[in-house]
């Protein structure tokens, strides 16, 4: 299955939920009736990576991410949030780590020089993000949320993509060159 096919399946499944007719005023649904009811957010991510077995360097070359956000009150905001989640998730998977000196407990990388975030060239060449809008009865105006959910798919998908590329699951995050090469060596 290609990334495109997989996304179609997810979109069909999630879109298949009743939503109010166009123009209906739904008002705020945070009513007493829904005390104790929690919202469920859904999303899916599809990632393709290149691994250089000589250096352990991992480059994410394609990312596709789709989220069920309830009603998108500000669609452009939703799209931007998912883009941010893609980048944040890639950093979490590959580079971000607060490093402590074990004997003293002092953080040795308390700056953006050593605490590594990707620069813009770390963003995959191809990024496709989308959302579906099944009406949510709990959230305000049928909305859910997409703050944290946008961050979640990248790192498990990148673990799996590395497995697909070199046949080994790296058992830690971030997956630095040292971690990737160690995992390959233990294969």
């Amino acid at each position: 299955m290609t990334i495109e096919d997989a996304v179609d399946v997810v979109v069909v499944v999630v879109d298949d939920v009743a939503r109010p007719a166009e123009g209906t005023i739904v008002g705020s649904a945070r009513a007493a009736d829904f005390e104790g009811v929690s919202q469920k957010t859904f999303g899916a991510g599809f990632y393709e990576v290149e691994v250089d077995p000589a250096t352990g360097f991992v480059r994410v070359i394609e990312a596709v991410q789709v989220h069920d956000v309830g009603r998108a009150i500000n669609p452009m905001g939703v799209i931007n949030q998912i883009h941010g989640g893609v980048m944040h998730g890639i950093n979490k998977a590959l580079t971000e780590e607060l490093i402590y000196d074990p004997p003293t407990g002092v953080v040795v990388n308390p700056n953006l020089d050593e605490y590594k975030l990707h620069m813009i060239d770390g963003m995959p060449e191809r990024v496709q993000v989308d959302f579906v809008e099944p009406y949510d009865v709990v959230g305000p105006y049928g909305a859910k949320g997409v703050g944290e959910p946008a961050l979640l798919p990248a790192s498990p998908a990148i673990h799996a993509a590395i497995y697909d590329a070199v046949g080994v699951y790296v058992n830690r995050q971030p997956m630095t060159q040292a971690a990737v090469l160690r995992a390959i060596a233990e294969l």
Partner: peptide
């Protein structure tokens, strides 16, 4: 140059 991220703003690992 092998480095920790992308191609900018990073010292060499090797």
């Amino acid at each position: 140059k092998a480095q920790r991220r992308g191609e900018t703003y990073d010292f060499a690992v090797v």
